[in-house]
Design a protein around this nucleic acid. Structure first.
Lengths: 343, 343
DNA sequence: CTGTTAGCGCTTTCAT
DNA sequence: ATGAAAGCGCTAACAG
């Protein structure tokens, strides 16, 4: 196999009869140097003719910029939501930056992958996407430390940090939950059962507060909070038990759509009519919501926007070191479908 | 903000009282040079103490290896399947390589992103994941050309190429479809309706052939092939029409699970009992299959393995330039659930 | 066994 | 308006 030599800026320079510096100026469109149009044309021609591609590693070494950002998420990568986030990120970073997927798996160096990548300059900054289901508090402190003390450009996506020292883009779970509960109440539901996961995260606290506030604003609404195990079998068992006492309530709120799917499924099994007997609403949506029977009413999370805004923040930090940290909160949107009914 | 200087191998060398070369030898565990244990210890200590991380850009420039691979997929990134593939890739490439997401969006240079990345040495090789729904044939030729003529390390995942010059990892859609149809026939179904997308890809051809072969192997089985529009509304309309003629068949095969969801949903609407009146099976599964009512019987695609095997092949090419191209075909697995019934 | 040194390909200051 | 040259941090061939 013939190993052909790489075309360098030197080659282009020779071909065009100029120096390497000129080539660099022209191809990078450097401000502050004015170059004759004819020279410009010549160089561009030569580059095209020779098939010149600047070596990004050499550029990176020189400029001290990898032109890549790392995305790290402890969340189950299988989650569809992760992908929507990615889409948003992609839309915001433009053609010049690339996305490197990193884990927080500890590597040979004894450091999490994202950290090593940064220290080794493979990435210029980091986007943390929270692991919704098991947000470990100790880790957060590490992250914060990195961001503040080590001055690593980091944006926290879907973290409710309330820390003015760091950039974070959050989803307004409180308001989403508030909207969902209010919607139910407006539709005449008086006894509401609220299925929450059996662990406590900032996110779930926000939701709980949202639901409670909505309930407290009205007289005579009864709210029953029921923690549900994340274990599949236990979840099913719990849902069946709850459905067997359907006379005690008229509506169900679930923190996640997955729980709502289970409710819908088991309701069918038990011949309980949704929404006639029970209204069901989930505080997070997914693509499948239109395929359940009946179609699931949800509070949609702005995942694309989450990715987009987070990436925008990161880009700002990267291009302007003096960017002030910002805490941004994104609203949810209620999507009414067939699992809830009006009065 | 104090801009602290980067720790270089020079610093480590000084700290340990050796030369940079020695540092490099030790930290990279270079074969063929033997170094005193004490020196080794000293250097490793020094590196740790100083917090030394080799600059990957400098390494890349020197070694001519980016230690990154690019993944490109025209398929809707929102697809959940994409993620499983990614998981598989990650599992195969190990800690030393990273994954860069690339599009085939044409950049400033007039070349698709993945191509530029390769030419600019941001990635060492490319993993193409087919765009299932609209596999454009002209593009394939470009890809093949790149792989063969330009000698770019490429692995085609989920492409049915049958070209011995290139590496490709394919899913055995034929056999999957054959299994699904056989399963239905074994369960006593005599009239089967087969819903295919209204466009023609290699993949769909394989499936069609699989279904047909299974049918032809048995006497007295009637097969009705019906193309379905990918347009959502039209799909629903078509499904309703088909369900209205439910006396003409006893089982439905769909190419995708999404179609099957629509069938299941509309069957509920029309009060048709699945699987009692009609058995339903999809030739591709998804996470949601356990939440439909009834739970959907599917032919599961080996997406994780697809990523894994593809990445393995690419790694082979990268480490050994003489690796012979291989065409690998991965089997599907039938997952029996509640939307089909036995005799 | 360890040190010296020459680049890898690029940007960018300084000089012309 | 353009060129010469230094040097980013590393590896590896060669010297000792």
């Amino acid at each position: 196999m013939k190993k052909l030599k790489r075309v360098t800026s030197m080659d282009v320079a020779k071909e065009a009869g100029v120096s390497r510096a000129t080539v660099s100026y022209i191809l990078n469109d450097v401000q502050g140097v004015s170059i004759k149009e004819t020279t410009k044309k010549k160089v561009i021609q030569a580059a095209k003719k020779l098939g010149y591609y600047p070596d990004s590693m050499a550029v990176a070494l020189k400029t001290n910029k990898a032109m890549s950002i790392g995305i790290v998420s402890k969340r189950n990568i299988s989650e569809q939501r992760y992908i929507k986030f990615l889409d948003g990120v992609k839309s915001a970073i433009g053609d010049n930056y690339s996305i490197i997927l990193c884990s927080d798996h500890v590597d040979n160096f004894g450091y999490p992958e994202y950290y090593s990548y940064y220290k080794r300059k493979k990435i210029d900054g980091i986007l943390f996407l929270s692991f919704q289901e098991h947000l470990a508090e100790e880790k957060i402190d590490d992250y914060l430390h990195m961001s503040v003390e080590e001055n690593i450009p980091i944006v926290f996506a879907d973290y409710h940090l309330n820390n003015q020292m760091v950039n974070c883009v959050d989803i307004n779970y409180y308001h989403g939950a508030y909207m969902a509960a209010s919607y139910l109440i407006k539709n005449g539901q008086k006894e509401i059962i609220y299925l929450t996961p059996d662990f406590d995260t900032e996110q779930e606290q926000q939701r709980r507060k949202g639901v409670e506030d909505a309930v407290n604003e009205h007289k005579g609404i009864k709210l029953i909070k029921t923690p549900i195990s994340t274990d599949n079998d236990k979840e099913i068992e719990a849902v069946i038990k709850i459905l067997s006492k359907k006379d005690e309530y008229s509506a169900i709120i679930t923190s996640w759509s997955k729980m709502a799917y289970t409710v819908l499924y088991q309701a069918q099994q038990l011949n309980i009519s949704i929404p006639d007997e029970i209204s069901v609403i989930a505080l997070a949506g997914s693509n499948f919501d239109v395929y359940t029977y009946p179609r699931l009413t949800t509070c949609n999370l702005p995942l694309f926007e989450l990715g987009q805004k987070s990436a925008e923040r990161l880009m700002n930090m990267l291009t302007d070191a003096n960017t002030l940290p910002l805490n941004i909160t994104l609203p949810c949107k209620l999507k009414e479908r067939d699992s809830t009914k009006g009065i």
